[in-house]
Amino acid sequence: MGFLSKIKAGLQKTRSSLMARLEGLFVRNTFDEAFYEELEEILIGADVGVETTLLLVEKLRAKIQEEKIRDGDRVIEVLKELILDILGRETTPLQLDGTGPAVILVLGVNGVGKTTTIGKLAKLFRAENKKVLLAAGDTFRAAAGEQLQIWAERSGSELVKHQQGADPAAVIFDAITAAVSRGYNVVLCDTAGRLHNKANLMAELKKVHKVVEKALPGAPHEVLLVLDATTGQNALAQAQVFHEAAPLTGLVLTKLDGTAKGGIVIAIAQKLQIPVKYVGVGEGIDDLLPFNPAEYVEGLFAAHT
């Protein structure tokens, strides 16, 4: 199944509600205040957020006036373009170059799907015949290590694990050292879910990041923040604070197979210029896809093309 069809399947429900409203909206030929207000509600309803929504609508208004647009279909094209201006138009691949193993740090608040995402990423790398090592850096949550163990088996990767309560930095350091000496290509580091307003847990994360830098020059090659598409405006705060603790290189947007739209990634891209790199569209090991902005936006507006 290709990206588009999966995304389409995933966004089916989203689209049916969103599009029903959009279709109603865009058959009009005149654009009055009620039109813009309704447009605002649609974007806010997609969790794009007040600020980014107002910005988008503001720009759309200007364009409509400037280009004297009268046609509803043309309006949606303009809106898509405006969103793509923010999201970027290209798929952003993982940057894994370097001499030793590529180290990927996976972060996020509780329950967003970090461990599952690691399992899926491992599978992707295994499919490219890479040797993959998983580091069980979530030493806090009950049975997190066991959960990762199962993903290691499913994906055909190896696992480095200490006992519960161990120092996560130590686990990850061990994993990287082992990966270097045993010639692994990729190290995927799991971390405990942490709310970004817990100062001590964020300090722990900084330490983990520092240890990774020391363990291998050039590492971490990727620092991915996992965001739950169901999350609202708080995701922006998450991105901001995690970015300060450990500079992020990309986002993974999970649970996009529900009805949530994950529109907050548009706000994050606009404010922090952090690209979405992957999207999670199910619980299966293959349900992780590279994020393609054009197709994502296309998927959102598919009924109009």
Binding site: S17, D47, T230, G232, A235, G258, T259, A260
Partner: peptide, 12 residues
């Protein structure tokens, strides 16, 4: 329900 849930909370 996760307190951080966005607009979709209603649908869910």
């Amino acid at each position: 329900v996760d307190a951080m849930t966005g607009q979709d909370a209603v649908t869910v």
